[in-house]
Design a protein around this nucleic acid. Structure first.
Length: 258
DNA sequence: ATGGTAGTTCAACTA
């Protein structure tokens, strides 16, 4: 079994103990994390090595920053969108023995119509070009991370309240499905899910306690790889801890084949 | 229609 997960940790400095505990308990082969908010010189390599994980990372001060933790070494393929120079560290692609893992922290977009919203759509359009290339070179591709997009109303606690708002707007959803429909599958929707399950809840207004959430963190697998996906779930346990991230991990398991 | 909280950094930005 190949077990892979994504988790926006919202500061690795603050969340390190949570991440170490979760890795130790869950033992995924690969964990993609977002919003490390750490420069590369400050990345806690030793702490992860201590529990048997290697780390690839690209970070910056204060904002953004992505990393891929893994039980075995991989090859870094990219730390940015090749055709889109961007000082914001939001992308890391690592190959593990033919399986390509693309970790994304998609721009939040702030507000529909804002400069940050335009940046988000532009970023997503360049991402589409990149994943098209990647899927040609690596048929076994997993694209995962914080997409900052709730794909459908089923992924939103109150679709009426969120209609047309950032994270749920038409252009964002179109960009998401454009990406997915060119050779990827949303692993979470491969399986019947018990109840509306979200991956992010606003810290404000007791969002988690009232289960006012959105499913904006995703694991997408290349079509053929998706046929070997055995499970996909959201683990809300870490969201219940003291000083949690506002996101919960999403976990998928694939049967290994040759 | 605004605000609520959290992280980084220390006033203001991002989410």
């Amino acid at each position: 079994m190949f077990k892979i997960a994504t988790w926006n940790v919202n500061s690795l400095r603050v969340r390190l103990a949570h991440v170490l505990a979760w890795l130790t308990a869950e033992q995924p082969d690969v964990l993609a994390i977002q919003e490390t908010k750490l420069t590369d010189d400050a990345f806690p390599i030793q702490e992860f090595a201590g529990i048997g994980y290697l780390a690839a990372f690209t970070g910056q001060k204060t904002y953004n920053g992505v990393a891929i933790l893994s039980k075995y070494p991989g090859q870094v393929i990219a730390t940015a969108l090749p055709a889109y120079p961007d000082p914001q560290k939001r992308l890391l692609c690592v190959e593990f023995n033919g399986v390509c893992v693309l970790n994304l922290y998609v721009p939040n977009g702030s507000e529909v119509g804002s400069e940050k919203y335009r940046y988000k759509l532009e970023w997503l359009s360049h991402l589409k070009g990149y994943t098209d290339d990647l899927l040609r070179n690596y048929p076994k591709c997993v694209v995962l991370g914080d997409f900052n997009i709730a794909p459908t109303d089923a992924d939103v606690h109150d679709p009426q309240e969120w209609t047309g708002k950032v994270l749920c707007s038409g252009p964002e959803r179109e960009a998401f499905f454009k990406l997915v429909h060119s050779g990827l599958v949303d692993c979470y929707r491969l399986f019947p899910q018990q109840e509306p399950a979200y991956s992010w809840w606003d810290y404000r207004a007791a969002g988690f306690r009232r289960n006012r959430g959105l499913r904006i963190d995703h694991i997408l697998a290349a079509t053929e790889l998706a046929q070997h996906c055995k499970s996909c779930r959201i683990d809300i346990a870490p969201r219940k801890l003291e000083r949690p991230s506002d996101h919960a991990p999403v976990v998928a398991e694939f049967e290994v084949w040759t």
